[in-house]
Computed example of a mutant assay.
Amino acid sequence: MARVRGFGELEATIMDRLWSRAADSGATVREILDELLTERDIAYTTVMSTMDNLHGKGWLTREREGRAYRYRPTLTREEHSARLMLEALSGGGRSEAVLSHFVAQIDAAESADLRAALRRLARKAGRR
């Protein structure tokens, strides 16, 4: 699995598992552990500590469910990606140059998606 920027390897794996679930379903440590055990040997306490750390960092919310917690991401995968893009844009030098280099590297389908998103945002802004 590719590492998700801003997360360690196990954190990225856990976030990916949570993001891949139905929007509000979340998961307990045991549910995530059971999935991970099909791919690697890992201890319950390791998964629990990592999920607790993600909660402490503000990436996950949790609520009691019996004796366990059910964890849910505070942002969608797309919201997280948008945040990373904004950080790259604001910290990468001149915004216009960063955007120009970005647009030059995307393929035709991604370019069409970008144009469509900009049109939708322009229409929304026009309605205000």
Rank of each mutant, 00 (worst) to 15 (best):
A112V: 03
L84S: 12
I14G: 14
A122P: 04
Y44L: 13
R94V: 14
L10M: 11
Y71R: 05
A109E: 09
E35S: 04
T46S: 04
T61E: 13
S100F: 13
W19T: 00
I106A: 04
Y69N: 02
A68P: 08
D113P: 00
Y71W: 09
P73G: 04
V47H: 09
E31P: 03
V47P: 15
L33F: 02
R5E: 09
G56T: 10
E110Y: 02
D41R: 14
L60W: 11
G91W: 01
L75P: 00
H55L: 02
S90I: 08
I32L: 11
E65N: 13
G58W: 12
T28S: 07
A116K: 15
G91M: 01
R17D: 04
V4W: 14
R128C: 10
G8Q: 05
A104K: 01
S90N: 07
K57P: 05
L118A: 09
K124F: 11
R123I: 03
T46N: 01
T13Y: 04
G58A: 06
G126W: 01
R120W: 13
A97C: 09
S81C: 10
A43Y: 07
E87G: 11
A108R: 09
R72T: 02
H101D: 09
V29R: 14
A88C: 06
R67H: 12
E87T: 04
L99I: 07
V103P: 04
E96I: 03
A2T: 00
T13V: 13
S95V: 10
L36R: 12
A108P: 01
L118F: 09
T61H: 13
M85P: 09
V4Q: 03
H55D: 07
V103R: 09
D41K: 07
S81L: 06
G8T: 06
R94G: 05
A12V: 06
T61A: 09
E39A: 02
R3T: 07
G26C: 08
E35P: 02
T74Q: 00
S49N: 01
K57W: 06
L75G: 10
T76C: 05
L86E: 06
A22D: 05
R119A: 14
T61S: 13
G93W: 00
R40E: 15
G8N: 01
A112T: 11
D113H: 02
T50Q: 02
R40M: 12
V29H: 09
L121H: 07
T76S: 10
E65S: 14
G126Y: 03
S25V: 15
M51N: 07
D52L: 15
F7S: 13
L60Y: 02
T13M: 14
R119L: 15
G93Q: 05
G58I: 06
I106S: 01
Y44F: 14
M48H: 11
A117C: 05
A23T: 00
A109L: 03
E31R: 06
R119I: 12
A125Q: 03
M15E: 08
R120G: 02
E87I: 14
R120D: 07
T50A: 09
V103C: 08
V29Q: 08
M85K: 05
A27N: 08
I32M: 11
E9M: 11
R123H: 07
